[in-house]
């Protein structure tokens, strides 16, 4: 919505031309400026700027829903409230699996088995429904070049021998898993935008990003410290809205780093101060 063109928003011809002449073309361009800055740039009355901004805002605003509608929609749609089972008894009992339409993060130290977990999940999503799978395609975004097809087949043969021993099935299962190797966060977004359509058509049943940390960390190293926060969040809001829109589970892995527990950077400046008890009303 933020890239919607201003000349399609029902503004008067004259003001719409003024926006275009100053190269303010999209809603994002217009709303990324304060009203005062816009007035200076466009050289029109503040009142005119305000009413134009209001019209743009009205068009761009997401629709109003109520919480009741949300709960009713969930009941109706067969795609929501679903889970991709992990086929691990304890985890499936407590979590039911990886929820559709949500971002799930797997975190742990190196070597604990995050990639192995992702490979297994990919297989389960690809498996036919008769074997407890989702019979879907998988997009596997491998940022650390850790994906191993051989290991994938090995896991399949050992976990689901009845399927993988059938001739041609290993090929069919592995053929449903698409692996992408983006090297920057921008490339990641680009490839996600390309698969968006097939995500929306419910062909893809799982998106794995292994790992999300690799992209952001690598970019931080080449930039100053202050840059980290920006790149860190960059794809996340997009990922979240993509998961919600397509109702596909997205699983991301993340690395851990050690920190001292007495580290002051995990405290606020006011902590450790003594407080007076609040006055209680009698």
């Amino acid at each position: 919505m933020s890239n919607k063109l201003i000349n399609s928003m029902g503004l008067s011809q004259s003001i719409s031309h003024i926006f275009a002449a100053r190269n303010i073309l999209t809603a994002k361009d217009a709303l990324s400026m304060t009203e005062f800055d816009l007035m200076m740039l466009l050289d029109v009355d503040l009142d005119d700027v305000r009413s134009a901004v209001m019209q743009i805002s009205r068009v761009v605003s997401p629709p109003r829903q109520t919480a009741l509608q949300l709960i009713e929609d969930r009941g109706r749609s067969d795609h929501s409230l679903g889970y991709l089972p992990t086929m691990l008894k304890g985890l499936d009992e407590t979590l039911q699996g990886m929820p559709f339409g949500c971002l799930t993060e797997l975190v742990g130290p190196a070597g604990i088995g995050k990639t192995q977990f992702c490979l297994k999940l990919s297989l389960i999503a690809a498996l036919p429904a008769s074997a407890g799978g989702l019979n879907g395609h998988v997009v596997y975004i491998d940022t650390e070049s850790k994906f191993s097809s051989r290991r994938l087949i090995e896991i399949g043969e050992n976990s689901f021998p009845h399927i993988f021993r059938v001739k041609g099935m290993a090929k069919e299962m592995a053929g449903k898993i698409y692996v992408i190797h983006p090297t920057t966060a921008d490339e990641l977004i680009e490839s996600l935008q390309q698969i968006k359509l097939s995500l929306l058509q419910h062909e893809v049943k799982l998106v794995v990003i292994d790992s999300i940390a690799a992209l952001t960390l690598r970019e931080t190293e080449t930039n100053k410290i202050g840059y980290k926060q920006q790149t860190l969040g960059c794809p996340v809001s997009y990922l979240k809205s993509l998961a919600e829109l397509s109702q596909v589970p997205i699983v991301v892995t993340n690395q851990v780093r050690s920190t001292r527990t007495d580290d002051s950077s995990f405290r606020y400046t006011f902590e450790g101060k003594k407080f007076d008890r609040p006055l209680r009303k009698v």
Binding site: M1, S2, A27, K28, L31, S32, V53, M54, I56, S57, R58, V59, V60, S61, P62, P63, R64, Q65, T66, A67, L68, Q69, L70, S237, K240, S241, E244
Partner: peptide
Amino acid sequence: NILYFRVCSYTEQIAVINY
């Protein structure tokens, strides 16, 4: 009675507050 807006970009956030 909970009126809900799902906002996905800062442009939409500014827009909804204006609106």
